[in-house]
Each structure stands twice: as structure tokens, then as C-alpha cells.
């Protein structure tokens, strides 16, 4: 019977390993996000930053970088969405301003989420946004046109081989309030 006790011990140990691995798979999500933030794996930008130049950033000379703005409307959201200027040249560690224009082409109220993405991914953590419409959901009334400002700067810590940065915004429709009762059926 001594053998049985040992057996249940290893059994319990294996079952807890299974449970741990199940939760580990969920832990992969925050781990992945941290990993992405550190390595710029997927070109994601996380949250707003304030304009603050660290000492070690000051050591590097400011240089000129070309930023191109891209827009993309996904899953057929009925919105016209484009940058007001396609390309700017910015100096590192200097705040720049641009804007995007969004226009609702329907007679319905639309709620929108806009997701930023930076290419090359490794430059993502050096594109710091002070103000951006991507931080929160945006609402457009029927046929409304809005101009959404973006204030950002590129840290001088950006890699030396980075000369062109692509800043892309993808717009998704998250909610639509019908103002008419048309039903298209399937």
C-alpha cells in the first residue's frame, strides 16, 4: 500500500501541472504583450506618453526622420478615413502635430475604435504619442466629419538605420446605432 501513496502523490503532481499549464496559456497573453513592448515585435504602441526627454536621449544629436501616415478602414466600416498630410519630416525629440480626417457616410451614429501600428516594429517604442484619437473610442454622428489631431515625437533612441517610419491607423466599427428601421434580412 505504500506504493499507492506514492502513486497518488505523482498523480496529484501531474494534475496540478495540467492546471498550471492551462492557466499558463492565459499568462502567455500578458507575457506576449510585455515581450512585444520590449522588442517591438508587432509594432504596437501602448498608451499615451508625456513629452519628457531623458538625459541619455539628449546626448544623441537630433536628426531628421521621414514619417509616412497610412490609413485603413476595416471590415467595410462606412467611414471615409485618411491622413490630412501623407508624409512629414520630423526631428527627433521634437514634438510634431498632424491630423486624420474621418467622415461618416451613413445616416447612423457610429462608434469607432482606431488601432495604431508602426513599421518597422522595432521603432514602435520610440514613437511617443502625447495626444491621439486612438487612445479612446470615437463617435461620429450621421454624416459628421471630424478632424482628429495627433501630437507625437520620435525619441532619438530610435535605431540608427531607421530613416523611414510608417505610422498606420486601422479603423474598426465597434457599434452602430440605427436611426431607421430598415431590415435587410439575410
Amino acid at each position: 500500500m505504500a506504493k499507492n501513496n506514492f502513486s497518488s502523490k505523482i498523480f496529484l503532481y501531474l494534475v496540478s501541472a495540467v492546471i498550471f499549464m492551462f492557466f499558463f496559456s492565459f499568462m502567455l497573453v500578458p507575457l506576449y504583450n510585455v515581450f512585444c513592448e520590449v522588442t517591438g515585435l508587432n509594432g504596437k504602441i501602448y498608451g499615451p506618453s508625456s513629452f519628457f526627454i531623458k538625459d541619455r536621449e539628449k546626448e544623441k544629436d537630433s536628426r531628421e526622420i521621414r514619417i509616412k501616415f497610412l490609413s485603413q478602414v476595416n471590415e467595410s466600416a462606412p467611414v471615409k478615413f485618411f491622413p490630412s498630410s501623407n508624409e512629414v519630416k520630423v526631428w527627433t525629440n521634437k514634438v510634431s502635430k498632424t491630423s486624420y480626417i474621418a467622415e461618416n457616410t451613413t445616416d447612423k451614429q457610429l462608434t469607432l475604435t482606431i488601432i495604431p501600428s508602426v513599421s518597422p516594429g522595432l521603432a514602435a517604442e520610440n514613437v511617443k504619442k502625447i495626444q491621439c484619437f486612438c487612445f479612446e473610442e470615437q463617435v461620429l454622428m450621421p454624416y459628421e466629419r471630424q478632424e482628429w489631431p495627433v501630437r507625437f515625437y520620435v525619441s532619438s533612441e530610435v535605431g540608427d538605420n531607421v530613416n523611414d517610419i510608417y505610422l498606420s491607423y486601422t479603423l474598426f466599427e465597434t457599434d452602430r446605432v440605427l436611426t431607421d428601421n430598415m431590415n435587410h434580412g439575410k
Partner: peptide, 21 residues
Amino acid sequence: TGQIEILMEGIRGSQMQSFAE
């Protein structure tokens, strides 16, 4: 009008895309 709307806006949650662009 309904048909134009479907083509312009697509049908959400289905394969029917917007053809506005």
C-alpha cells in the same frame, strides 16, 4: 434605396462587403 445601402455599407457580420470603395 435599400439595395444601394447594402452595396454602400455592406452587411455587418456577413461576407457582404461594402463596395463603396
